[in-house]
């Protein structure tokens, strides 16, 4: 564990609390993409099957359980109690293409041919693009509530710190994971536009609104 990874994981955790706070505080999931949230649930379930096969640390297991449980809970909140507030008409990104694309990549470039590694690779590829329905929705509506943009920023910052973690691990441990690196780089690049708008607008106390 290093400082980049620890802060990254904590930011990931924080992003989920921010999202739950937004839903609870505004009593609405307006502007939140259910497709992105459902994709994250699929990502966590397919990646963390090693909970049953390998023990790393209490920290590792607790975080995995939290990510699976919280993503399931968010999907439930949006699906059932907050359904009337869900902006379905702007959440129109074709998420099925992302799932099919990630599945094909997972089969073409798996970490190994073990079923767990194929699913792990699929989840890495899927996570890289899972934010797209959310970003697409924000582009379509042209703006987002400030707290929703904090959520996306925390997620993007978590990814950016993972890149620094990999550079650090490469030099200190010789650690290499090409699949995670390439997918992680793609994932971080997807946030580039968002970061720019967030830093120039939201940080100055304005809404996330497209120029």
């Amino acid at each position: 564990m290093n400082i980049f990874r620890l802060v990254a994981d904590l930011l990931h955790l924080a992003s989920i609390f921010i999202l739950l706070l937004k839903i609870q505080q505004t009593k609405s999931c307006a502007g939140v993409s259910l497709k992105t949230q459902a994709l994250y649930f699929v990502v966590f379930v397919t990646r963390y099957l090693d909970l049953f096969t390998h023990f790393y640390s209490v920290y590792n297991s607790l975080m995995k359980l939290f990510f699976i449980a919280s993503s399931a809970y968010i999907v439930y909140l949006m699906w059932k109690p907050y359904r009337p507030t869900y902006s379905a008409s702007t959440d129109t990104f074709r998420a099925e293409f992302l799932i099919v694309g990630a599945a094909l990549l997972g089969l073409a470039f798996p970490d190994s041919w073990h079923i767990l590694d194929i699913l792990w690779s699929f989840s890495i590829y899927l996570e890289a693009v899972a934010i797209l329905p959310q970003l697409f929705q924000m582009t379509r509506t042209g703006e987002a509530e400030t707290i929703t943009s904090h959520y996306v920023f925390a997620l993007g910052a978590y990814r950016a710190l993972y890149l620094m973690n990999w550079i650090y691990r490469y030099y200190t441990e010789g650690y290499m994971d090409v699949i995670a690196w390439v997918a992680g780089a793609v994932q971080t690049i997807l946030y580039a536009d968002f970061f720019y708008i967030y830093l120039t607008r939201v940080m100055r106390g304005r809404l996330f609104s497209l120029p």
Binding site: H54, N60, F67, D111, S112, W113, H114, I115, L116, W120
Partner: peptide, 10 residues
Amino acid sequence: EQRPHIHDEL
């Protein structure tokens, strides 16, 4: 028998 790789990151 083949074992899955170890992935220590979240």
